[in-house]
Design a protein around this nucleic acid. Structure first.
Lengths: 224, 224
DNA sequence: GTCTATAACTAGATAGAC
DNA sequence: GTCTATCTAGTTATAGAC
């Protein structure tokens, strides 16, 4: 994704053992404590690197934050768009199946959050917390990733449920995205006294979520 | 809510013009920038008070954060529980109407966020951002407010939709809460290029949200 | 009750040794 | 490429004047 052959700061575009350890440590700490509660010192200490390592490899702390997200979001965006393309191709010129479109949107995210190779629900918590983060650098990056996804999925959903308006589709999608993040974050907390922890495997999670999402998209607006 | 007649710090339990200005300024800044991006200096400057004012009135910065939330959440919790009691009373021993239970849950929050006397969507943004905040003091307070609400509404929803399990009800509720916050936060952002801003009045917002929530609660689980 | 001045601490960034 | 030491500027909390 990044080029930055020489320009300015952030000299290291390529891989490096230290660089990877910094990303891993930062991701884990961000998910645990939230972005603002983690310092350069926390990360370098956890990664077994020196204090200057972040500036050397990323140019600045805020660029490391974006790098942490890019490592996960870029593949997620690609998977979502590919899955949607597959659904569109299978449908040909016929009607788009709503449930399949919603599954293309949400399956990659749930899988990444729950079965990702590194850290279990780390990325889920990270995403849940960060979507609402007011950090302008991060917000700009996330927007750049989310925008094409929203654009293409909104169009597909409009095709799948033609009686809805674009604004309505946009709104319902955001409800679902917020619900996904909240539920991913909740999976990691202990439920309130007496209620057993909801322990769903990723596949069941996806299927339930898609079922709920489909029901919500099929709901008629109340009469004005 | 608070007593603290004399003990330790946080001397001022009663009202004070400065104290109220501090709460107002803090709430606005928290909603705009997020909790961690606001300092004691920012708040006191915006409130036209001195640097020591927060320590004097609240004992510490983190206690002011809780006070900001308490001023909004305590009435919200009360309204929700009262609305639910009214629904239960109207139903008598008969079945509870699902839609009315969900409305008791979500109408007070939407109204507070969208028509609150002070600041428009300020509280909505604040809640959306803070529900996921890892700050332990705040999390503990929010939990103390949310716990009785979740407990009573889960019981009511189980009565309204007896075929669901408690875990399932709990999960669907959290999906909806997350969706509410995401959509409240989104109302304040400009939509992505070309799409007109969704400008709903509070009443329409409530009715649409409740319609979606009802549809989601009536959705059957996919076959295992 | 409210202010100013300051203490004690931590933040991110950088210079320079190796 | 990685380290240590240091710089500047920010933080909260507190002491004491008024």
């Amino acid at each position: 994704m990044a080029r930055k052959t020489k320009a300015g700061n952030g000299q290291a575009g390529r891989s490096s053992a230290t660089r990877e350890r910094l990303l891993d440590a930062a991701e884990r700490l961000f998910a645990q404590r939230g972005l603002d509660a983690v310092s350069v010192r926390d990360i370098t200490r956890a990664a077994g690197a020196s204090l200057g390592a972040i500036t050397y490899h990323f140019g600045a702390m805020r660029k490391l934050v974006v790098a942490v997200f890019d490592r996960r979001m870029a593949p997620l965006t690609r998977q979502r768009l590919e899955a949607l393309s597959a659904v569109e191709k299978a449908a040909g010129t016929g009607p788009l199946p709503l449930e399949a479109v919603l599954e293309a949107m949400f399956r990659p995210a749930v899988m990444e959050a729950m079965t990702g190779e590194r850290a279990g629900v780390v990325f889920g918590k990270l995403m849940a917390r960060s979507m609402m983060d007011p950090n302008p650098n991060l917000e700009k990056y996330i927007h750049s990733q989310v925008e094409p996804v929203i654009r293409r999925f909104d169009a597909a959903l409009l095709r799948a449920v033609p009686e809805l308006t674009p604004e309505d589709v946009f709104w319902r999608m955001h409800l679902l995205v917020g619900g996904l993040h909240q539920s991913l974050l909740m999976m990691d907390r202990k439920p309130p006294a007496g209620l057993p922890r909801l322990r769903l495997d990723a596949e069941t999670y996806v299927r339930r979520f898609v079922a709920f999402a489909t029901a919500m998209f099929r709901a008629r607006l109340p009469k004005a």
